[in-house]
Design a binder for these strands. Structure first.
Length: 549
RNA sequence: GCGCCCGUAGCUCAGCUGGAUAGAGCGUUGGACUACGAAUCCAAAGGUCGCAGGUUCGAAUCCUGCCGGGCGCACCA
């Protein structure tokens, strides 16, 4: 519907694709079904007063398909459109014939996109911040996938650096403490309870006392990492997140990719030595200063492997990279972008979404997370306590760049306070209506357009208009990378439906299932369309759409 | 000190990249079921969009400066 209208407006105003045409749904119904402000934005360019221009545009409008009921010029120069009922019925039929494919469209045009998210260090259990990243990354991937992008979900494993070594030392120390309680614990070691469990587990698998300390630490590091990764995978699976690819940082070293990358950079004259370290000239590409790639002790920095990693993403043929990072990494973006710019990457090839902090609340108090003390609520505990549906939905009710207060008690409650049930309930309710109709011997069949003309209530027309916005909402999400818009859309659609449904509580003739067979079938069709969209929307959020609750 | 994010109803947050009288949930107050499911609906109260300038037909949205909160500014990962 929007596309049709946009074409009509573009033709009438004689503007090409270089100028965006904004079509909005006015907040007030007396301003029409759609409104555009093109006359105002174009006024200065065309050197005409907005109202005059609006009149000209309206005069030029050719409505070949006959979808427009009425046009009005209002306020400072808005052009308001009312669409014919018949055109709305037609779009409703499209929903019913497309079913769960409704909303799918080729926005991505086959573009290959890599979405990298979670990427937690395999040195400890996932926490709530990872959960937020997982919800965002996975839903975004689902949506982009649905819209014609070729999406790869990747988890980058930081398994090369010092922190894995430290994991090994921590486990080893806990192992020793089993027999010598005073055995020293590494200064920056991982304090969590899970390290002790790992120590017990690993010492059962293999007799560490037969190894040298060095051997044992390495073994603990390797096994500890493996076990942690298994836990991470299981947690994510339980959260309905699956990755297409697990990319190991270590493999960058082993495959020689890292050294090849450094050679390339060197050949391009981007590297130099100073104070015994190797530096890259990122400052020439917008970074504050140059950065070290190889430290004077010969070790590579994390930044070095990250450059190699991102060059590899490009080599693997991705047209766009989307990274989801914790906000504490924001200072890192300019240097990575600078390094990529030095290799001629387009500015927007890499898009980084930062997720702000999650503050956890329980019993009215903030739950402080401290890695050092090892006191934190893990992803898994949280998932078991509040449930996957509620967790995913709540994470996606906020924009990723605003911090979020997560109140466990509130999210746990299975009542009106929890928006996820509100939407799921609308779905279950529609399923119930369809069941009820069947029990009464009414089998719903797809109507033709004439049969839909008995949908006349303002609430019914409003429902149709809302349902039909779905493809547009998805498109905006993919373009702006903002899946949280979907939760708002679904909540609002559910709200319109609940209101519609409640009309029937006092007036039986306004129920979906009534004595009038034709009307009943049309209303069942409308309800089914709402159901289809809610079910699809929830699926794209990774939330279940129950038929009963 | 420099940089990034945030500041909207009592609380938690939206606000469709500059539009018309700023929205939702929770909370508060009052109402609607012997059932197409009340996990719902209806109504009321609640706002200087942090503050001050600027840009223009028009600003919560853009630019500048303050104020407040969070997070970063390593030859750490």
């Amino acid at each position: 519907m929007r596309e049709k209208l946009e074409k009509i407006i573009r033709n009438a105003a004689d503007i090409d694709d270089s100028i965006p045409v904004i079509i909005e749904v006015p907040s007030r119904s007396e301003h029409g079904h759609f409104a555009t402000n093109v006359a105002m934005t174009l006024a200065s360019k065309k050197r005409l007063p907005p109202k005059k221009l609006a009149e000209l545009i309206v005069k030029n409008i050719e409505d070949k398909d006959g979808i427009i009921e009425r046009i009005e010029i209002a306020g400072p120069g808005f052009i308001n459109f009312w669409i014919k009922d018949r055109a709305w019925y037609k779009t409703l039929l499209e929903v019913l014939s497309s079913k769960e494919k409704y909303g799918s469209q080729d926005v991505g045009k086959g573009k290959k996109v890599i979405v990298e998210f979670v990427s937690a260090n395999p040195t400890g259990p996932l926490h709530i911040g990872h959960a937020r990243g997982a919800a965002l990354g996975d839903s975004l991937s689902r949506i982009m996938d649905f819209l014609g992008y070729r999406v790869t979900r990747e988890f980058y494993i930081n398994d090369a650096g010092q922190q894995i070594r430290l994991l090994g030392e921590s486990i080893y120390s806990r192992y020793k403490q089993l027999s010598e309680p005073d055995y020293p614990f590494p200064e920056n070691g991982y304090h969590g309870e899970y390290i002790i469990e790992l120590a017990q587990m690993i010492s059962k698998e293999r007799d560490l006392s037969l190894m040298s300390k060095e051997e044992a630490v390495r073994f603990c590091a390797e096994r500890g990492k493996e076990i942690m990764l298994e836990h991470i995978k299981k947690d994510l699976e339980a959260f309905r997140v699956s990755f297409d690819s697990w990319f190991s940082e270590k493999s960058l070293y082993e495959s020689g990719l890292l050294s090849r990358t450094l050679n390339e950079l060197k050949n391009k004259g981007l590297l130099y030595e100073k104070d015994g370290a190797v530096w890259i000239k990122t400052s020439q590409f917008g970074d504050d200063k140059d950065r070290v790639l190889r430290k004077s002790d010969g070790q590579f920095t994390y930044f070095a492997s990250d450059i190699a990693y991102h060059l590899d993403k490009k080599k693997r043929g991705f047209d766009q990279a989307i990274n989801i990072w914790g906000a504490d990494h924001h200072g890192y973006i300019p240097r990575l972008k600078a390094a990529l710019a030095s290799q001629g990457f387009p500015e927007d090839w890499l898009r980084v979404l930062l997720i702000q902090l999650v503050k956890l609340w329980k019993e009215g108090k903030e739950v402080k997370m401290s890695k050092r003390s090892g006191e934190f609520i893990t992803f898994r505990e949280l998932m078991e306590e509040v449930g996957v549906d509620a967790m995913r939905f709540v994470f996606l009710t906020k924009s990723h760049d605003s911090s979020l207060d997560f109140d466990i008690d509130l999210v746990k409650r299975q009542d009106a306070e929890n928006p996820v049930y509100y939407v799921q309930y609308a779905h279950a309710r529609i399923c119930s209506i369809l069941r009820k109709a069947k029990e009464r011997g009414i089998s719903f069949r797809t109507p033709d357009i004439e049969e839909l003309t008995c949908l006349k209530l303002p609430e019914e027309m409003e429902l149709i208009r809302n349902v039909v916005e779905f493809p547009y909402v998805l498109k905006e999400i993919a373009l702006h990378l903002e899946p949280h818009r979907l939760t708002y859309y679904l909540t609002s659609l559910a709200s319109v439906f609940h209101r519609y449904f409640n009309l029937g509580t006092s007036k039986p003739e306004l129920r979906v299932v009534s004595d009038d067979p034709a009307l009943t079938n049309a209303r069942l069709a409308l309800s089914e369309a709402v159901r289809v969209v809610i079910a699809k929307g929830l699926t794209l959020l990774g939330v279940s759409a129950p038929e009963r609750m």
